[in-house]
Write a protein that binds this DNA or RNA. Structure first.
Ligand SMILES: [Mn+2]
Ligand SMILES: [Mn+2]
Ligand SMILES: [Mn+2]
Ligand SMILES: [Mn+2]
Lengths: 216, 216
DNA sequence: TTTATTTGTTAGATGAATCTAACTTTGTAG
DNA sequence: CTACAAAGTTAGATTCATCTAACAAATAAA
């Protein structure tokens, strides 16, 4: 059995492992908002449970079992977010906190039902992929908007940061998944971009913003 | 703040208080499947939090605040059950366990949404009333089927016991909420009843079963 | 009205998840 | 190649929720 708490550790480790290869105790500690010694003990416990490969001073790694468990939690999280938006009418900036709790519900049927009501979605409301029923996850290789050159038109497919603040920033500018964005010009000085898209007047987007927008 | 665990104690106390007036530590302990000394300490803690009135050897009572908290948890439980059946297509014998977990989700909007999607229902899939937004609950005064005399026709409005077993017993006989039941005859020896209703051949129902069926 | 049974309480232990303080290892900047 | 900073570990304490064993009070039976 994996406890509620352990599930959160596994999930964080899983998500941190996606991006930057190596994950350390400190990084995990920051991400969870839990002090390092606590994380340390938990890693020992998860090692006993054969969910994590842990050796003192070495980077942390999930075992195959750990990866599957974690992937399935992420699956529940993202299915939930999709359900909250598509079925229950929430906006994409209000779903994360609720999903953070519902991802721990023990009931395969519950999530299977969500999955089929949603027509087996492959991405969540922020464009992040939903792991399959074995917990496997694959990111499509999107480009960051930063890499797009002036004159190109691309489609917004995902956002990297799903904080309420960032999502509300996008809401305010009527930028949503699927929006076709034309890069009008790029300011070489600070890499900010002037973009145009239907349903809104032209916008200036800072580098910080652009690098968080994934497009194709 | 009321913890997950505390919520379950409050809810049990609330539900036990509905029926038989007096609730003791032993009864609560049985209902929760938790040993008496543990319940004892918890009562002391809930007393400190002003949710329970507790004096050694005296019966347990919720304070007004405790009653409201508990009522709101029951509300979340029953709204969830209704949501699972009406929106997600579960059958009434599969929803309790899931609701037992979801009732602890902290998100008023989540349950408000359920409530409005369901059109502000007043009863759950087992016919139990859903407390209002202040946690107030009122049972309609139904009769038990046991009190119905031969010849009368009544409508099944609620079931007292919502165990999977009992619900599957009713499923097997095609008995559901709303079914119009005609009492054909009553066996005075053991108070079993012969009943008839559309969609099924006549059935013999034991006293044990009849007393759990609420009708009007 | 004694005695036995049920109910309730106290005391003390355990395991999970957390923390702070102190120490150690690793890696980097002079 | 030291020395300092960052990252990681150990030790020990705390809080919550649980248990068992032993004792006490209230109730029901004899
Ligand atoms: Mn999320
Ligand atoms: Mn979570
Ligand atoms: Mn229920
Ligand atoms: Mn519960």
């Amino acid at each position: 059995m994996v406890s509620y708490t352990e599930e959160n550790y596994l999930k964080s480790l899983f998500l941190l492992s996606q991006g930057s290869g190596e994950v350390g105790v400190n990084e995990l500690s920051q991400h969870l908002g839990i002090k390092m010694p606590t994380v340390n003990s938990m890693m020992k416990k998860l090692r006993e449970k054969k969910l994590v490969v842990y050796e003192a001073y070495k980077p942390l790694k999930l075992t195959a079992r750990g990866k599957k468990e974690a992937g399935l939690i992420v699956r529940k999280h993202r299915l939930t977010e999709m359900f909250l938006v598509d079925i229950m009418g929430f906006t994409w900036d209000k779903v994360h906190e609720i999903a953070e709790q519902i991802e721990h519900i023990a009931s395969p049927e519950f999530f299977d039902r969500m999955d089929s009501m949603l027509g087996h979605p492959t991405v969540d409301p922020h464009g992040s992929p939903i792991p399959d029923k074995n917990g496997n996850l694959v990111w499509k290789q999107y480009r960051s908007l930063l890499e797009v050159t002036a004159g190109e038109t691309v489609k917004l497919c995902a956002v990297i940061n799903s904080s309420d603040e960032f999502l509300r920033f996008l809401n305010a500018r009527n930028l949503q998944l699927g929006t076709k964005i034309k890069v009008v010009s790029v300011e070489s000085f600070d890499q900010s971009m002037r973009v145009s898209y239907t349903g809104h007047s032209d916008e200036m987007l800072s580098k910080i913003v652009c690098e968080k927008l994934l497009v194709e």
